[in-house]
Design a protein around this nucleic acid. Structure first.
Length: 371
DNA sequence: CAAACGTGGCC
DNA sequence: TGGCCAAGTTT
């Protein structure tokens, strides 16, 4: 790891901030330093690209202009505003924190990193970002950009996927950060990481800080940052049941925790749960699978179904850690069947247009309309 | 600490 | 196509 002298640090700050003043990005949440604006944008930007966030941010500020508006929003409105952004616990934590600010802090923001960390959904990165950008506190905001930029500048070869690596970067950046303009410094690092020092296509030859970029100078830029690989998504096969009556679909509400918590989807039955009902799961025919599925529905929910396969390949949807392969089946059911043992209800197309749906369910509807 | 947690873009 | 990346936090 490279160590910079005090003179080098001064020169780096000046070079970086001069570049940022001339070429920093103009983004909707950079129009002022309102902590509410900084906060909402930072949460949306977690694991999400700038271009994706911009329209969501604009709509969100129109819909919920202040932290008070957010605190009193309905869950349905909130999720509709977040629909498609993913990592939905971010939205729930956002509203929970809005309630903390309004109720526990009398509408005033905590102005320390420690105070910010008490708020739901605010971890070490976001606390540093809000503290430095909104309150001008000289603290680092170590996100993926900061990890990548400083690992290359200083040839830090620690695995950035390990939690304990963060404190090393925080300590290093704390010494380098501009004490006068910490918010601009942190944002400049992000802009640098999104341009001249991007992950896949860096252009260090033209970078404003190329003279400080030891990994580039040594011709080993692409060896940084060091990051251990994550396991591949596990494949899971489901049967997705399209149960219609008039203009309604029989939908289920997912559990309040876990993947896609509280979202409505078609009934999804794991293929494994179907095969588990056979004595010889290794030699079950397609025909027999459907019969087993109908028996499962009868036993679990008291519903008499007759399912028919819908043509085409299974609908594939990949999450960070799971890949769903959904084979669609259709079934008819009377609207007056007893649903007292079934964890769902009929939703009209009008209902469905109003609620937030996860992308995988949108895919399933698209498959239906395409045939 | 390792794993869970969504989605879109890129090659 | 599959794998990786994109302004992380929670448990």
């Amino acid at each position: 790891m490279v160590e910079w002298s005090d003179e080098q640090i001064q020169a780096f700050r000046q070079t970086l901030l001069n570049w940022y003043d001339a070429h920093g990005r103009h983004l909707p949440w950079r129009e002022d330093h309102d902590p509410y604006h900084v906060w909402v944008s930072e949460i949306m930007l977690q694991q999400t690209q700038v271009n994706t966030v911009i329209p969501y941010y604009e709509r969100f500020m129109t819909r919920f202009p202040t932290v008070g508006d957010l605190a009193k929003a309905s869950e349905a409105d909130l999720m509709k505003a977040w629909e498609g952004l993913g990592y939905y616990s971010r939205a729930r934590n956002l509203q929970k924190a809005a309630g903390q600010i309004v109720n526990d802090h009398g509408g005033k923001w905590p102005r320390t990193v420690e105070g910010l960390r008490e708020l739901a959904g605010i971890g070490p990165y976001t606390a540093g970002a809000i503290a430095s950008i909104a309150f001008n506190l000289p603290v680092p905001a170590v996100d993926g950009n900061a990890f990548r930029v400083f690992s290359r500048l200083l040839e830090i070869d620690l695995d950035i996927a390990k939690p304990q690596t963060r404190q090393v970067f925080e300590k290093v950046i704390s010494r380098i950060i501009s004490p006068d303009r910490p918010g601009d410094f942190n944002q400049a690092i992000m802009d640098l990481g999104a341009s001249y020092m991007s992950a896949k296509h860096p252009d260090s030859a033209h970078s404003p800080v190329k003279a400080f970029n030891q990994a580039y100078l040594d011709g080993v830029e692409m060896q940084f940052p060091v990051k251990s690989k994550k396991p591949r998504p596990v494949k899971v096969a489901y049967y997705g049941l399209v149960i219609q009556h008039a203009d309604s679909f029989l939908m289920v509400k997912r559990p309040g925790n876990g993947l896609l918590a509280n979202f409505w989807t078609f009934p999804l039955i794991a293929e494994d749960d179907v095969l588990a009902r056979s004595d010889t799961p290794d030699m079950v025919t397609d025909e027999e699978r459907l019969t087993l599925l109908e028996q499962l529905f009868q036993d679990e929910f008291g519903l008499q179904l007759h399912v028919v396969p819908i043509g085409g390949k299974p609908v594939k949807h990949t999450f960070t850690h799971r890949q769903w392969l959904i084979s669609l089946l259709s079934a008819q059911l009377d609207s007056n069947v007893d649903l007292s043992f079934f964890p769902g209800k009929w939703l009209t197309t009008n209902d469905l247009a109003k609620i937030a749906l996860p992308k995988v369910q949108v895919k399933l509807f698209k498959r239906l309309s395409k045939g």
